[in-house]
Design a protein around this nucleic acid. Structure first.
Lengths: 103, 103
DNA sequence: TGTCTATTTGGCGTATATACCAAACTGTTC
DNA sequence: GAACAGTTTGGTATATACGCCAAATAGACA
């Protein structure tokens, strides 16, 4: 495994890590339906707003969401709609592992 | 967000978490090329074999790989080939975030 | 049975992630 | 410019993840 390839996989792991949390998946699912403010996302997730803000910062650093201000509020936007098909494969992993007992 | 949906996203996060590590991505990439023993995977990853074994156990619990014995060795097998297309989307996230400075 | 090879598991230290509260910050509106 | 609403950041505590070494385990083979 050469260093260049390892660096590419490092970056890939970083993006995947950003999605590896239930609260952040809730956020992505909300944003699939449309742009949302931090307050709206906080209500959907059900944690402290400061916690949700940190989750959003993780997603933003990974390039998965973007944000822009609208008056007092910060509106978040799903930057990569292909995330949906991404989850299609995750679901297939889950379905396959549930359908067979050989784990 | 109802409890059932949250549980589904918990499971989804578990699968994604299993992929959220460079060493485990190296393992998946190796297994895309064909089945491998723990020793072979250890060489590809470049960590202690005990560490690689633990990574494999994470992937196995998530349902991403399966294993069976061949003589003295345990052979690991990629259970879900759709993982490849999965990474296609991850790569798109990376490419998009690199092509624009608005992170 | 005893030994060898391959793999997994226990123990432990260190690093990273997550959560909350409180305080700081930013733009709005009066 | 003072008060307000929305959001982010600092501080801190707890939990989880990761890595290595050493020891335990499982099957192969004499």
């Amino acid at each position: 495994m050469d260093d260049g390839r390892r660096m590419e996989l490092d970056r890939r792991a970083e993006v995947i890590s950003a999605l590896a949390h239930t609260s952040r998946l809730i956020i992505v699912e909300e944003l699939e339906a449309g742009d949302r403010s931090v307050g709206e996302l906080t209500e959907a997730v059900g944690s402290d707003m400061s916690t949700v803000s940190r989750h959003l910062s993780v997603l933003r650093s990974a390039g998965i969401v973007s944000s822009n201000r609208d008056g007092n509020r910060i509106i978040y936007h799903l930057q990569t709609p292909c995330i949906t098909s991404f989850f299609g494969c995750v679901q297939r992993v889950i379905d396959e592992s549930e359908s067979c007992s050989c784990v």
